[in-house]
Design a protein around this nucleic acid. Structure first.
Lengths: 292, 292
DNA sequence: CAATTTCCACCTAGGTGTGAAACT
DNA sequence: AGTTTCACACCTAGGTGGAAATTG
């Protein structure tokens, strides 16, 4: 155990990984209505795998690969076909849950930092012959600023923030636009999205504030020949289906707070392989000039 | 001088780099009509910088950044506006010319190999508000098979090949579709295109035959909502403007034939830096077990 | 024997967390 | 004291030509 000195003071409870506190906070959040969906009237259906029993008629076809989010076809597209029941299924939800159970943290930097895990989804119910855009954005979960308390390994509310005047940036999936057939045939990965705390960012990265809670949202929209969706910065008012998943919520940080998160990231992110234990601090020894 | 042993037998003439022979062959090729443009009736205007004197009315606005190719608006798009005079300008033409003067070779492999130099262009005369696709393909320059003669450092005709039944694969620029405004604002680079000699290739690479002469072509097409251009394998019959540049012609090889080409590639391609002279064959000495 | 394939050392390009320094 | 930034060693991912092996 030779991880970051930043999270040096952690409780035994945090290391054992008892998920009780976190589980207790969830029901309250699930019950509260969507506060942030005023900008278009699109319906958002969130379904964690724990709530997978509802709407069995729609979930009959579910494979056991992961949680599923569904939006009913209330015809903002103008089409009445049964196929209008678009479903979006999160891939890699087990990994997301591993982080979520601890309290997911995502690093944000000036230059932009990828998410790990990244959002990857499968889409069903599209019209194979029609063209769609698929996009992602990240919206605040609440209006609170958080602070991590080391000795209790807990996130505490540390203040309020007004997000209401900020329109979140949208990252259009690079394959867009693309036929429904093609979208449905592949796993749609947003692994190249980058998060930044630089409000002046000009590289199209998603701008967030550190020490706040956010959730990614996936958007599916039929191609509209009237607007060039490929260059927009904000979502159109209608014709957009929006999906999100409880287990992808995270807190933004500029340096990891909870050492369990650091450990899990190092363990699962291929790019952090150099920090895995077995062969670690071997290079440190080479820096000591003792062979002379 | 410790380059490839393959091109060991080279003439002094080749090393000095006298361009006379090549220059002599060019006029014949320029005079011959396009043989391979039967598939759509699109007009192709080729203009090397050596022929830049013609059509001065159109080239007045030319900057001195490179050669320019122009297609007149004869309304396959149905529009009559003056803006229909689309111009495509090759970027990095000095580098291309350095290779062309020697006799450009491009390696092709089963897995696919990038081109160096890569095709990079600037486009002018698009309708800023309309959507366009930009694409590249590579077509045969003639029906000959070539062989490199080491002792005279020359390419000789070695036989005939019938290309007529092969429709070339098209590589759609990944930014497609995109507004004319955006296309014109940036340099359009095809550096990710890969060439292969694998006729069964399923990765969308451009399939070529080794030891043949080819030229890349750049295509500009207005978006047609009737067809999903993003997934096509061959060009539509109409509404396509096609451009090519004499200095981007090349001969396909599976291993470099002319040592001057090898030298120039190593010198200019960042990925071949490891073969540049100063620090070379230092690692070879480490492999000799002589320190015991 | 010419042409092609394969494996390799050496690069570019860029995604990790670290730990010290800087900021506020 | 909490938070942010920076240079850095260490990775992944993949683009080079060399040289030996293989192909036809």
């Amino acid at each position: 155990m030779a991880l970051s000195s930043r999270a040096h003071a952690f409780s035994v409870e945090a290391l054992v990984g008892r998920p009780s506190k976190r589980k207790l906070r969830d029901p309250r959040e699930e019950a509260q209505p969507e506060l942030l969906e005023k900008d278009g009237g699109e319906e958002e259906e969130r379904r964690s795998s724990a709530a997978a029993g509802r709407k069995s008629k729609l979930t009959e076809k579910r494979t056991k690969t992961g949680p599923l989010a569904t939006t009913f076809g209330f015809n903002s597209f103008g089409s009445l076909e049964e196929k209008d029941i678009i479903q979006v299924e999160l891939q890699g939800s087990e990994l997301w849950k591993s982080f979520h159970d601890i309290g997911t943290e995502m690093i944000i930097t000036k230059a932009g930092r990828r998410m790990f895990p990244s959002v990857r989804v499968k889409v069903k119910g599209l019209d194979p012959g029609k063209q769609y855009y698929v996009a992602i954005d990240v919206v605040p979960v609440d209006s609170k600023r958080y602070r991590y308390i080391y000795h209790s390994s807990q996130w505490m509310i540390a203040g309020n923030t007004d997000h209401s005047c900020i329109t979140p940036r949208v990252y259009i999936h690079p394959d867009s636009p693309c036929s429904g057939e093609t979208w449905m045939r592949q796993i749609i990965s947003f692994d190249r999205v980058k998060l930044t705390n630089n409000e002046m960012d000009d590289k199209g990265h998603i701008i967030l504030q550190s020490m706040h809670k956010y959730k990614p949202r996936v958007h599916v929209m039929k191609q509209d020949s009237r607007v060039d969706l490929s260059r927009i910065q904000s979502l159109p008012a209608e014709g957009v289906k929006t999906f999100s998943f409880k287990e992808t919520e995270f807190t933004t940080v500029t340096a990891y707070q909870n050492q369990q998160i650091t450990k899990l990231k190092i363990d699962r992110n291929p790019f952090a392989k150099g920090f895995r234990d077995p062969g670690r601090n071997r290079w440190k020894q080479q820096l000591i000039p003792s062979d002379l």
